[in-house]
Simulated scan of single mutants.
Amino acid sequence: MQNGDRTLNDHRARALQRFPRHERRGEARLPAVLATLAAILLYLALPGQLLVVPRYVLPALEVLLLIPLIAVNPRRMTRQNRLSRTLSLTLVGLIGVSNLAALGLLVDAMVTERADDGGSLLLAALQVWATGIIVFGLAYWELDRGGPVVRTQVDRSELPLADFRFSQDENHDAVEEVADGASRSCDWVPTLMDYLYVSVTNSTAFSPTDTMPLSTRAKALMAVESIAALITSLLVIAHAVGVLD
């Protein structure tokens, strides 16, 4: 047992020298900005019948929420206060609610057969599905372990409870080249790409794959995403393909 602990400590010391947790620089801001802008552009491209308010109202509001977040952390996410935290959660919530509303209108158009063009309906379904992947990935990223700023700026012993368990959180006793990248060994924490991957797998498999939800809110979010993706894939797209035939 002592030899095993000594080996683990050696792995951890070696890995920490190579991989300090982002060197306390914080996670890069650019990927989140690009993901948010992609979701906004996808919404702007939706057919008018799937919009609950005039086309540019929600995108303009979302951009207004994004600007101060960029101003607080223009390059690396190292600072956070109550206002910036509220703005970031509001931004994700707004994108998510508007996308679910678009999905509801899309299903209504399918059921009542108000869609004039099956190809347009199919494209809209793909836009809603892609936006769902982005927004749920952002939601997981914002909520897990206190959010992106806390995950890199707070000691691991002070991190809030995890919402997700990644494979890296269990790899400390694996072979050396795997253990060196584990959470316990090198102080690894997930980034936006990890959460987008969770969102992609959940929206395609309709269930967790290699990353498990731990908290009630994580399970609830993954359940909503799975149901939305299932509706989009099996009902809306199937109807659109039927119209095209």
Rank of each mutant, 00 (worst) to 15 (best):
N3K: 08
R6V: 07
A15Y: 01
Q17T: 12
Q17I: 04
F19H: 13
E23L: 09
R25Y: 07
R25Q: 14
R29F: 09
T36L: 02
A38Q: 05
A39R: 05
A39E: 01
I40H: 08
L41F: 13
L41G: 11
L42I: 09
L42R: 02
L46A: 02
G48I: 10
L51R: 14
L51M: 12
P54D: 10
P54Q: 08
P54K: 04
V57W: 13
L64A: 15
I70L: 05
A71E: 06
V72C: 05
P74G: 08
N81Q: 04
L83Q: 07
S84V: 00
R85I: 00
R85T: 12
L91M: 11
V92K: 00
I95H: 13
V97I: 15
N99R: 01
N99Q: 11
A101M: 15
A101D: 03
D108M: 12
M110D: 11
T112D: 08
D117G: 02
G118M: 07
L122K: 03
L122T: 02
L122W: 11
A125S: 15
L126A: 14
L126K: 04
W141Q: 12
D144Y: 09
G146W: 00
G147A: 02
R151Y: 10
T152C: 07
Q153R: 15
V154R: 12
D155K: 07
R156K: 12
R156D: 14
L159T: 05
L161C: 06
D163F: 07
R165H: 11
R165N: 09
Q168P: 00
H172Y: 13
D173M: 11
E176V: 13
E177D: 14
A179H: 06
R184E: 08
S185R: 09
S185M: 05
C186D: 00
P190W: 03
L192N: 00
Y195H: 11
Y195D: 11
V200T: 03
T201A: 02
S203F: 10
T209M: 14
A218R: 02
K219F: 01
L221T: 00
S226V: 01
I231G: 00
L234V: 12
L235G: 11
G242F: 06
L244D: 07
